[in-house]
Simulated assay, not measured.
Amino acid sequence: MDQAEFGHLVEKKSASSELFKGRLLHAFRDEVILPSGKVATREYVVHPGAVMVVPLLEDAHGHLQVVLERQFRYPVGRVMIEFPAGKLDPGEDCFACAQRELREETGFSASQWAHAGVLHPLIAYSTEFIDIWFARGLRAGQRKLDDGEFLDVFTATPAELLDWCRVGVVTDGKTLTAALWLQNVISGAWALDWHEGV
């Protein structure tokens, strides 16, 4: 989409103040000039960005499985089912982050990778983006969880995952997006450009 043709919708920052700076989140309140010329305020969080990996695994019978995680998420107070994901370290390349997060959280490394796209999960109040990667040719290894990180790794069929999305067992936005992507890849509607990885 050519952003230049939508200039009549753009808001322009006229002032900015910092509200909060933590280890992960950095919050601001900006004054903006609306397309009408009126002034409004926008509060938002600056986030370093993240990756999510959709790991594909064949079981002993050659049937496709996906590697998932169960993790307690404090803000919502419940254990969630998610694909492996994590934030970018300062200066880190998205592909390097995807490889690192897959290895650290699940113990798997992958021989082939495909970049699927980018997700903006919280466009109303955050700069966060999530780079989506698919991985296959998985080799098991040792996990290296961060200190204070606790999660279970398990596998499910794509059909099981999609049913969990349908009935509300899976409600994590990035995982719902990945399930949509997975469904279209499996059906052949959306192609992936696979390349060798380490």
Rank of each mutant, 00 (worst) to 15 (best):
L34F: 08
P35S: 02
G37E: 00
G37R: 04
K38M: 11
V39R: 11
V39G: 00
V39P: 06
R42T: 04
V46G: 01
H47Y: 08
P48D: 07
M52K: 10
M52R: 12
V53C: 03
V53F: 08
P55S: 07
P55Y: 04
L56F: 04
H61S: 15
H63F: 12
L64A: 02
V67M: 00
R70W: 04
R70G: 02
Q71G: 03
R73N: 10
V76Q: 07
R78C: 03
R78K: 06
V79K: 06
I81R: 03
F83W: 07
P84D: 09
A85Q: 13
G86L: 03
G86Y: 08
K87Q: 15
D89V: 11
D89L: 15
E92P: 02
E92V: 09
C94H: 14
F95A: 15
A96M: 12
Q99L: 15
E101N: 05
R103V: 11
R103H: 14
R103Q: 04
E104T: 14
E105D: 12
E105A: 08
E105S: 12
A110M: 13
A110K: 10
A110Y: 12
Q112I: 07
W113V: 15
A114Q: 03
A114E: 01
G117V: 14
G117M: 13
G117D: 12
L122P: 02
L122Y: 13
L122T: 11
I123D: 10
Y125T: 09
T127R: 02
E128W: 04
F129K: 08
I130S: 10
I132K: 13
W133M: 09
F134M: 08
F134H: 09
A135E: 12
R139N: 15
A140L: 14
L145N: 01
F150D: 11
F150E: 02
F154I: 00
T155P: 04
T155W: 08
T157W: 02
P158R: 05
A159D: 10
E160F: 02
E160G: 05
W164I: 08
W164A: 00
V167N: 01
G168R: 00
V169C: 10
